[in-house]
Design a protein around this nucleic acid. Structure first.
Length: 484
RNA sequence: CGGGGAGUAGCGCAGCCUGGUAGCGCACAGCGUUCGGGACGCUGGGGCCGUGGGUUCAAAUCCCACCUCCCCGACCA
């Protein structure tokens, strides 16, 4: 066997088989693993650490905007779910039911929550009496079960984790403002923390949440050219308040139904991180959410325990004291080369190599994961250089993703053009749309693409030309894409 | 849920056609030499051959059912 054959190929190249590449990263970076139950995965410590970082950074934003956390039951009585007609119709194909408790058949079966509007709506009716009780701004971090037919780690699993906000307001305007405020919050979160640019917009009626008045979403473009919904924010209007009788006495002493919103972001964002930033060596994590921001790798040689190791330990202590998440890998059973590949797979943003040569010259070698470039830094300069480097990596990942979106967003004015782009290039396609569901359905059937959103950035901008499908006057500029 | 492919050691696979009690590479353990891009040598451990049933003196191998994974569609965060 020659040397090249001995070097085990890490993972399938992204260009060769994207979904295989994706699954291999999930497993080799130890983010998640399959269980014997269909569609149910274990989120392993490394993947869960990413989720904890997402929770920490998103939760802070949710609280800063005045929301508080609470926890509602996992089970929802069937009758509750049935109260809002559109809601039950939309979710019934994917609800799991509990019919037996212990040895006894239940009188009323219980749904394992596919979302919590129903149970929360019931409780809100008990708690809200007056305009003085409003707004109610609750959020919960929870698990959700939806009996999906096709599953994929992080992107679509039977059980997943999310955060769901449920708010009540005095007026329609306040409800709409809340919906948009959260949408903007999500967008800012994705771009600042995950380095994933998103397009914010309205969903069409076809794609809206079952029971919502209007659904807004943020959509990102993965590096295979398919779109992924990163978060949704629903203006529920009075649909659920009427179904659950959530009434309050307003300032003019009239009984009124509250105006509600709900919004969520899920563990799917972890899948988005892989697909937006990963390369053929594995994950590339944005420093702001990376569980490990830098790893120190010692290069052994004779006496290294006396010479190299103490220096490495000192560097780690100094960087940790400065607030960075820094690991030290001084294991002797693996060679440096093996470790380089391993931490690249896991997407650790910065690698710090310290060997005998470095110790002698008082330096360290820094290698950034995003560009794989090296630089030499003196040990004294390291605590100042690391934060700057992490910021550069964060910015580079965002910029690369933005450039990808820009390069893969195209305008189509004819149906042939739309079809051609979706078939040969993928990505986002901007095109005028007449507003008819028939056109939406036809495009979906023939191109597998859907309207991801009607971008908010297009509001007030005149639509150029007729509907890309039927030619009727364009009512909106729609963003089409094949999606996950 | 429809069409296709697959499940044999932790991972990747061979063996199956033509039944006779399981093998390779990597990984893992021990020892030694190594270590600046997945090191090498020697020794060793590990398998209800996805699950259940059937055929047979005998099943990883043949037959049936089910489960799970992957791909392509319909449904969805």
């Amino acid at each position: 066997m020659n040397k090249d054959e001995r070097l085990v190929r890490q993972i399938t190249p992204k260009s060769e088989d994207f979904s295989r590449w994706y699954v291999e990263i999930v497993q080799k970076a130890e983010m998640a693993d399959y269980t014997p139950m269909k569609g149910m995965m274990v989120i392993r410590p490394y993947g869960y650490a990413i989720w904890e970082a997402i929770q920490r950074l998103l939760d802070r934003r949710i609280k800063e905007t005045g929301h508080v956390n609470a926890y509602f039951p996992l089970f929802i009585p069937e009758s509750f779910l049935k109260k809002e007609a559109e809601h039950v119709e939309g979710f019934s194909p994917e609800v799991a039911w509990v019919t037996i408790g212990g040895q006894e058949e239940l009188e009323e079966k219980l749904a394992v929550r596919p979302t919590s509007e129903a149970i929360i709506g019931y409780m809100y009716a008990k708690w809200i009496k007056s305009w003085r009780d409003l707004p109610v701004l609750y959020n919960q971090w929870a698990n959700i079960v939806r009996w999906e037919k096709v599953t994929r780690p992080f992107l679509r699993t039977t059980e997943f984790l999310w955060q769901e906000g449920h708010t009540c307001h005095e007026t329609a305007e306040e409800g709409e403002a809340e919906t948009l405020k959260i949408l903007a919050l999500y967008k800012e979160f994705c771009e600042t923390e995950l380095a994933i640019p998103v397009i914010a917009g309205r969903k069409t009626l076809r794609e809206k949440f079952a029971g919502a008045e209007m659904t807004y979403a943020i959509e990102a473009l993965m590096s295979d050219g398919k779109a992924l919904q990163m978060g949704t924010s629903h203006n529920l209007g009075q649909h659920f308040s009427k179904a659950f009788d959530i009434k309050f006495e307003d300032r003019s002493q009239t009984l009124q139904y509250v105006w509600q919103t709900s919004w969520g972001m899920t563990t799917r964002t972890i899948g988005a991180l892989i697909m937006a930033h990963g390369d053929d060596s594995g994950l590339r994590l944005p420093p702001r959410i990376a569980p490990v921001q830098a790893v120190i790798i010692t290069i052994p040689a004779a006496n290294w325990r006396e010479t190299v190791l103490p220096v490495a330990q000192k560097v780690q202590a100094a960087l940790r004291a400065a607030g960075f998440r820094v690991d030290l890998d001084a294991r002797e059973e693996y060679t440096p080369g093996w470790k380089y590949a391993e931490y690249e797979m896991r997407g650790v943003p910065v690698r710090i190599e310290i060997g005998p040569r470095d110790v002698k010259s008082g330096q360290a070698v820094l290698v950034r994961r995003d560009l794989k470039t090296k630089e030499i830094v003196t040990l004294e300069a390291l605590p100042a250089r690391l934060p700057a480097l992490l910021d550069e990596i964060q910015a580079t990942l965002l910029r690369q993703a933005e450039e990808f979106v820009a390069a893969n967003t195209r305008a189509a004015s004819t149906y042939d053009e739309l079809k051609d782009i979706l078939e040969t290039k993928r990505g986002f396609v901007q095109a005028p749309w007449c507003g008819a569901e028939a056109c939406e359905d036809k495009i979906k059937a023939e191109t597998m693409a859907t309207i991801r959103v009607l971008p908010l950035s297009q509001d007030g901008v005149p639509v150029s030309g007729g509907c890309v499908c039927c030619g009727a006057p364009g009512k909106a500029t729609a963003l089409f894409a094949r999606a996950y």
